[in-house]
Amino acid sequence: MRLNDARPQAGSKKRRRRVGRGIAAGQGASAGRGMRGQNSRSGAGTRPGFEGGQQPLYRRLPKLKGFPIVNRKEYTTINVSKLNSLTANTEVTLISLKEAGIITAVAGPLKVLGDGELNVPLQVQAAAFTATARSKIEAAGGSCEVV
C-alpha cells in the first residue's frame, strides 16, 4: 500500500448539504428553517439566554451567596460562662447539662466555646473545644476530654 492508494472507508464521507438551491435538492425555498419567524430570517438570531421576552432563567434565579457545606456538622454549643453555676469537680457531659437544665435542646454533639470566665474546676467531656475554652477550663484547674 502506498500513500496515493489511501482512500477513506466507503460510506464514511458524506457530501455537504447545499440548502436553498431548489426543490430537487431537498432543502429548497426555506432551506429547512421553516416558513416564517425570527429564526427563518437571515442575520444574527437572538443572544444566548434570550427567551423571546420572557424573563430569562438567569434572571429568574436568585444570585448565589457562596455554596452550602455538604454534610455540615451541627453542634450543641455552650459557653464557658454557663458552666460557672455548676459545683466544683463535676463531670460535665451533654446528658448532665440537659439534666441540670443549662441546655434545653440537643442539636448534636457538644462543643464548648470560650466566651466568659470560669472559676470552678470541672471535668468536661465534649466532642470539640475551642482553644480559648480549653485554656480557661485548664486554668481554672479542670480537665478537657474529647469524646
Rank of each mutant, 00 (worst) to 15 (best):
M1L: 06
R2L: 08
D5G: 04
D5Q: 12
A6L: 10
R7P: 00
R16E: 14
R17G: 11
V19G: 08
G20D: 09
A24T: 09
A24C: 01
Q27S: 14
G28S: 07
G32Q: 02
G34M: 05
R36L: 11
G37C: 10
R41Y: 05
R41N: 12
S42A: 15
S42R: 14
S42L: 14
G43D: 07
F50R: 02
G53S: 05
Q54T: 08
Q55M: 14
Q55H: 03
R59G: 04
K65G: 07
P68Q: 05
R72N: 10
R72D: 14
Y75N: 02
T77N: 09
I78Q: 01
V80L: 04
S81M: 04
N84Q: 15
S85C: 08
S85I: 12
T87H: 07
N89I: 01
V92H: 07
S96F: 08
L97W: 03
E99H: 14
A100F: 01
I102E: 06
V106R: 04
G108K: 07
P109A: 15
L113R: 12
L113Q: 14
G114A: 15
D115A: 15
Q123E: 11
Q123N: 15
V124E: 02
A126V: 06
R134P: 00
A140S: 10
S143L: 06
